[in-house]
Amino acid sequence: MELVISEEAKDYIEKKVPSYQKVVLDFEDGDSPFKINASSCGLDVGFRLVLLQDADESKLDFSNYQSTVNTSMGEVYLKESSKLYLDDNTRLVFDPKYMRLQLKGDNSGTIANSVEIYEA
């Protein structure tokens, strides 16, 4: 699997969070060590980008994040199960009209319409 982060997306992310140690593409399935918001049942596929300031794995359980993908932002960690929702060629792009990040695939089109950024 390949994850390409566009230059516009990278710039947008780094303006919001200028320094980070680890990047996680978290699939919102309710099984995450990041207690950011409540999970809900829905038909939409939800992903969020979690940028860790303190990547001390003794504080957070990363056992769910078995996979890594090399990107222009370094390694991105993700759950093996989340690959089911991604294409072999997936892109994280910036939508300037709505000021949001989107995940898009060569085969699937838009995978996630709005990928939120969180600091942890």
Rank of each mutant, 00 (worst) to 15 (best):
A55V: 12
F94M: 10
Y65C: 06
S58E: 14
R91N: 09
V76I: 14
N70E: 15
S40D: 12
D44A: 14
F47A: 05
F94Y: 15
D88C: 03
K59P: 02
R91I: 01
E75I: 03
M73Q: 06
D106L: 10
F62I: 12
V93F: 00
L103E: 05
F94T: 08
L101Y: 03
T68Q: 10
Y65I: 07
L92K: 12
R91S: 15
M73Y: 05
S40I: 08
D56M: 05
S81T: 13
S82C: 14
Q102T: 11
N64L: 13
T68L: 02
D87Q: 05
R91Q: 14
D88G: 11
N70R: 13
V45A: 09
K83G: 00
F47Q: 03
D88P: 00
L103G: 04
N89S: 12
L52G: 02
L78Q: 00
D88W: 04
Q53R: 13
D44H: 07
C41A: 15
S67K: 14
D88Q: 11
V45W: 04
S40L: 10
A55I: 11
V45T: 15
L92Y: 10
G42Y: 02
L84K: 11
S82W: 10
K83W: 10
D95A: 01
R100D: 02
P96W: 07
S39E: 07
N64H: 13
L103V: 06
S63M: 01
K83S: 03
D88V: 10
G105Y: 06
N89H: 13
T68C: 03
S58Q: 12
S67A: 09
L43F: 13
Y65R: 04
M99S: 12
L49D: 04
L86G: 02
L86R: 04
Y65E: 05
R100Y: 03
K97E: 14
N107T: 08
L92A: 12
Y77E: 00
N107P: 00
L49A: 06
Q102F: 00
S63I: 04
V50C: 06
D61T: 07
D87E: 10
A38Q: 14
D88I: 10
G46S: 14
D56R: 07
L43Q: 11
A38S: 15
K104Q: 15
V69H: 01
E75Y: 09
D106Q: 11
P96T: 05
Q53D: 13
S67P: 00
G74D: 07
L101D: 02
A38F: 05
D61R: 03
S63Q: 07
Y98H: 15
V69G: 01
L86Y: 08
T71G: 10
G46D: 15
K83T: 08
E80P: 00
L101G: 02
A55Q: 03
D95L: 02
D87T: 09
S58C: 05
R91A: 12
E80V: 08
G105E: 06
N64Y: 14
K59N: 08
D87V: 11
G46Q: 13
V93I: 15
S63R: 07
L78V: 02
G74A: 08
L60S: 02
S58K: 14
N89R: 13
S67D: 09
Y98I: 04
K83D: 01
